[in-house]
Structure formats: C-alpha cells, structure tokens
Design a protein around this nucleic acid. Structure first.
Lengths: 171, 171
DNA sequence: AATGAAAGGTCGGCAAC
DNA sequence: GTTGCCGACCTTTCATT
C-alpha cells in the first residue's frame, strides 16, 4: 500500500512542475486552476511524501562535449566488484549503475567525449570483469516526465500452457 | 567546434541549478559568489546556447506505483520497426528509446507497475521483433548531474598490436 | 564583463472565512 | 480551499568601473 496517492489535481501540479520547475505557485495555480496557497500546500505534501525528490536544471551533455553515450553490461569477477572496489570519482564517466537479475550483475550507463575516450574507459572497466557494450547512436525519444501509472493490459494469451496445471502466478 | 564553452563560473552556476532548479538568481549569486544581474545574464546565455534545456521537478516513479524498471534490446523485423509503426501513446511504459550500433537496432527503457504488467508489455513489444530483457533490481547510483568533461585517460596499452602496422586510429 | 543602487513587480506566508 | 493583506525578496534596468 502506498503512503500517498496523488489525485488529479496533484498530477496537474506534477505535470506543470516537471515541464518547468521554476514556475511560481501563483503561475501554477493560474494554470490548474487553483489558488496559490493550495498549490503550495500540495507541493509541500508531495515533497514530504518523497514523490517530488528535487528540482533540477536539465543540461545537454552533447553541448558540453560529452557526445558519446553507451551502456555496459558487466559481470563482475568475485572480489573485483565495481561497486565494492571502485570509487565514484575514479569513474566520473559513469552516470548510472543498475544492479541486475540474470547473467550480468551490473548495467552501467556511461557518457564520454569521444570514441578514443570510450576505448580507455572500457579497458579500465574491463578490469572488473567481462563486459558487453551497447553503443548508443542517438536517442530519438526520452520522456523525462513521470505520468500517472497506466492500467496494465492483460496478457493476450493464446498461450496453450496457461493454467493447464494447478498453479497460477499472481502476486 | 563548440559554439560556447562554459567557463568555471558557468559551471558553478550549472552545479547550483542542477542541484536546485528553484534557486533565485540572488541566492545563486550569494553562493558563487557573483552579483545577481551577472548570474541572470549567464543563465540566459546558457539557455540560449542550448546548454540548459529546461528545468524539471524530479518525481520518484516508485512512489507513484511504478516500481519495475527494465531495459529491452530489440531487433526490429523489417516493416515492423517500433519507431515507424508504433505511437508513443500506445506505449506509455516506454520512457526512452535509443538507436543502436550493432546487433540490435533499438534499446528501450521501460517502467511499469509490476511484473504482471511487464509480462504483458514485453509480449506486445515482442510483436515488433526479437527482444532481450535486462531486469533492473535496484539503482544504487545515478548522477543526474552533468559535470565538466573529464580529461580522457590514455589507453593503458600493453597491446602488442598497437601501431605494429602503418595506420593509427585517430579521428 | 561585473558591480551597485534603485524601482517596480511578484512572491510566499499567514490569518480569517 | 479561497481570499486578502503585508512584508520580503526578487528581477530588471542603468550608470559606473
């Protein structure tokens, strides 16, 4: 059970603030519409519940010389786990680390200035274990915005094995 | 050649605005330190050069019921390319699309409420071509922040084949 | 390019309904 | 949740260095 469920008004505020975090409560209220004190109260509530975690300026990495983005799947050798043996400052090129289920232990998102730079980076990361590189050429679509959770569509099964036995998988 | 190269003062401003996009020019100037009009002028310049692309509130997807994140590598069948045959509104769960070099054509980042929901989604996406799923368990590290480009470290070669022939690879 | 001062506008918080 | 008010702060302009 979730601690707080945003209602439609909250989502309207979240939409505005995700589109432009510098809007005043007044201006947000004007657009909803809602009075400024109410906007302020709701925003504080959303912050207090950890739904809004912060406000940030969006900087285009390509415009500051970081043109190459890649993902690196990493299967750490035992005792050489990147998370346990490396410091974030050693790898400023790493912008995200995900822990994975499955064959690989870690997925890294990295950003570098050039292929030459990437070559050096992948060599350094490779000291932790075997890697698999996914090179991004372009990112035609990225929604920064979090929207209301869409209703899950049912599995379109046709699966002949579905429920043929006793068990069914429902959490 | 880049159109505009942020100097140290610009980077200080970028740091502050990435950490809190709602700071006033006054407050930023107080921290740098720099006068408010100068801050305002630099911010406008950074916006005009496309270095600052916007300001957004950060919303925690997990707190609004979107707890599952995954990456899906997709190799589109010809004529069924996701980018060309699907609409963003059909797939609200897709939050990023990357075009790739290599074996797969596309990398999708998706966010859903549950495994059951993910099951249905991957089935729908699978209609476009073969997929490979990377399931994220947790994300222990993510720097939203863009920092000054670190100097590339030279490849630490030991490679016995390096420059053994005539050509060298430099762009 | 940065500073400082001045002016006008706007904002955010509080209290009352 | 709304309205109204007040003090404070902010942004902008301009002259100066």
């Amino acid at each position: 059970m979730r601690s707080y469920e945003p209602d439609e008004t909250d989502w309207a505020i979240l939409r505005e603030l995700q589109a432009d975090a510098r809007l005043s409560y007044n201006e947000i209220g004007r657009r909803i519409p809602l009075s400024a004190p109410s906007v302020a109260e709701r925003v504080r509530r959303l912050e207090a519940h950890g739904i809004i975690t912060g406000y940030s300026a969006d900087v285009d990495p390509a415009r500051v010389g970081q043109e190459v983005t890649a993902y690196i799947h990493l299967r750490c050798d035992s005792g050489r786990c990147l998370l346990k043996t490396a410091d974030p400052d050693e790898y400023p090129e790493i912008v995200e680390i995900h822990k994975l289920a499955g064959r690989h232990c870690t997925l890294l998102r990295v950003r570098v200035a050039s292929m030459a730079h990437f070559e050096g980076l992948s060599e350094r990361i490779g000291t932790h274990g075997p890697i698999e590189t996914t090179m991004v050429m372009s990112t035609p679509f990225a929604r920064g915005e979090v929207r209301p959770t869409p209703p899950p569509r049912p599995v379109t099964t046709g699966d002949r094995w579905w429920n043929a036995g006793e068990a069914s998988e429902q959490g």
